[in-house]
Design a protein around this nucleic acid. Structure first.
Lengths: 374, 374
DNA sequence: TTCTACTATTCGAACGTTTGAAATGTCAAT
DNA sequence: ATTGACATTTCAAACGTTCGAATAGTAGAA
């Protein structure tokens, strides 16, 4: 009954309904300092009426007036990539404690969308922006606009300190090395490697880590066993790539007992490709992934992989963003920082010792490795 | 230089910088009807200055004035459930064409969060709400508030027409029947079933569908081969449940050649459990899932499953929401509608004919089913 | 010159809140 | 009666936009 053209209940509605002014209503409902002066009876009346009418403050009006949106834009390049979710969770957790709300956007791997969402984040007056990205910003323009409007920005999953943007990411090189060393320790010497697509930032350092670890040991990486994923468009294309490359590996005629894949989806593709050719994992060939996303935890055999501390990365990004909002920070021209978090080997069942001379049935091999860290 | 206390560039900044009034700037930048009157030279000057200063309109001020937020709240019960993402994608696609922005929130399976996000959606003046939920609303209060504020609400994944909320969901019963019939057609007669947790809406109708299809055929469902998942807290618990129940199935001593699992994660758990016991899928036992989420597309063997038209469901929800915003709709008191979309059998490699008498090696069996619809 | 008819621009109020300053009412002390 | 002190409530301006109404500027017609 008391509503205006828009369906929303406002303070004016409450004020009229119980005979006070909007100011008084505001004082009471926001529990401002001055509300201490308001008579207890009045306070109760107003609160009851707010409850009764189903009043909720208008965040727009409030933000406009208070010049704070309480919002941090979070722009993910592709929410369907299971990689993103734990990062988002970390961000959520980090912001929650400071009472900031993440404004979550999903660019769906479309740069056009990415740009338009970044614009929206700016329009919605997010006080900071966290970008979860694999590729670079197309429009340097927008980046400049972000600066012009003094909105702090942090990127997760890439090193953009070169552009003076603080970056949080995993130590890809260490991860690549971890993967290779793991296979080495198990006894593998002939190892195939699938490098990531060229346009992905992670590809190069992971490959560097693999090479570096190979050099440390007695492993010779056979160039004919080094493959490269074509550029990827969605999470499934990594899988398809891995599956096809597994076929090429076998067709190459070179012997190998282990595969280091660029990421988990690729590794799952490799497992599929090997299975289709009748090669058993891990008995005849070990496979290591990278990321530790949900699908590799629930595959059979469980995927041995290099875990990125995704949640941790999200927490760090949130913490830095909030820090950048502190007034103390505002004057001292802050520099772009970088944090590389250490990856972690997750042992599951896709890796094992290379094929023993006496060909056993598969059961015993699997049983020995049954303790999981899913 | 021209910025005020808050770091954002405003129309006033532009107006001052090029000597016009805020009104003129507004006319030009919004390309309002009246901007036709503004001199071409003026328009260019203003646009150039806006560009130069990195101006972005303040969505808060704009929405306050125009009484439209251009926003639809989308509240997912758990974004880490791969089930949610395609729905969200569908919603995004449906809203995009109408220039509405989804305000995406992730309740992380926490009811407290769920409620507080619903409140925020209300405060941010979303013009409509789409809820992706498995469980019911805790606080009927909030639901009432939504009504009081005349915000249309639609739910995806549950039937809440009883509460006068329009609902979009898959036809679970048809899906359950589809799964059982598929196994029946392949020749299976001894089939184990894993029912979903009791508190999940989908559990009952899926089970009804299975029973119904069994009655249609000559299949006797052995009660000792019907299991029930404990209540689940996160996506992984379905997997763990399936894995354990697979063990129980085998321990029961009853013979079975096929398993209908409540959902994909459960089915993946079953596959793991069977593998750990040395039972091969699909040669010795077929497994059918439900949902068709990413992990079942990339498992080995690929999971045969009942696909929910998730994207479709999102699109439908978006369409209804937008429809409810039409002024024409506003007077005619709309009733709660329900749409049950048909599920679809996705054939992959986790199902096959029951074990033939002559025990073959696995390759041929797998090759015959190699055409996939990933 | 005065009037009409434009064109180009600005005024000013409104959207729902917040909040320092001001107003009102009450009562006791001078 | 006047003043001050205090408790309670309201005024009014501001946040950045939008947009109908008003104004200023120019020019052609009477």
């Amino acid at each position: 009954m008391a509503q205006r053209r828009t369906g929303h209940v406002t303070m004016l509605d409450i004020a009229r309904a119980c005979g006070f002014s909007v100011s008084t209503v505001s004082l009471v409902l926001t529990e401002a300092r001055l509300s201490a002066n308001v008579a207890e009876k009045t306070r109760q009346k107003i609160r009851a009426m707010a409850q009764k009418l189903g009043y909720h403050p208008d965040a727009y009006a409030r933000s406009l007036r208070s010049r704070r949106s309480g919002t941090i834009g979070v722009l993910a390049y592709d929410l369907s990539d299971p990689f993103c979710i734990p990062i988002v969770r970390g961000i959520q957790a980090g912001l929650q404690s400071a009472n900031y709300l993440p404004l979550l956007m999903d660019a769906q791997t479309e740069r056009k969308l990415f740009d338009s969402y970044l614009k929206m984040i700016l329009e919605r007056r997010a006080e900071g922006v966290i970008v979860i990205a694999s590729w670079v910003f197309e429009e340097a323009n927008l980046l400049a606009d972000i600066e012009k409007n003094h909105v702090p920005i942090i990127i997760v999953g890439r090193d953009l300190t070169g552009r003076r943007i603080s970056s949080v990411l995993v130590d890809n090189e260490a991860g690549g090395a971890l993967a290779l060393r793991h296979l080495h320790q198990l006894g593998h010497r002939k190892i195939a490697v699938i490098r990531g697509p060229e346009e992905l930032f992670d590809s190069e350092p992971r490959w560097a880590g693999v090479r570096c670890a190979a050099a440390e040991t007695d492993i010779q990486l056979d160039p004919r066993l080094v493959f490269q994923l074509p550029s990827l468009v969605d999470p499934m294309s990594g899988f398809d790539g891995g599956r096809q490359l597994a076929g090429q590996m076998l067709a190459s005629g070179r012997t190998f007992t282990g595969v280091v894949a660029f990421d988990d989806l690729t590794a799952l593709g490799v497992m599929r490709g090997l299975a289709e050719a009748g090669v058993r994992v891990p008995e005849e060939c070990s496979v290591v992934g990278f990321d530790d996303v949900l699908p590799s935890a629930v595959s059979t055999p469980g995927m041995t992989t290099i875990r990125q501390p995704l949640r941790q990365m999200g927490l760090q990004a949130a913490a830095w963003t909030l820090e950048a909002l502190e007034p103390s920070e505002e004057d001292g021209r802050q520099v772009a920082r970088i944090q590389m978090l250490p990856p972690e080997l997750v042992l599951r069942n896709s890796t094992g010792r290379p094929r023993p001379k006496i060909r056993e049935r598969r059961r015993p091999t699997q049983k020995t490795q049954l303790q999981e860290s899913v």
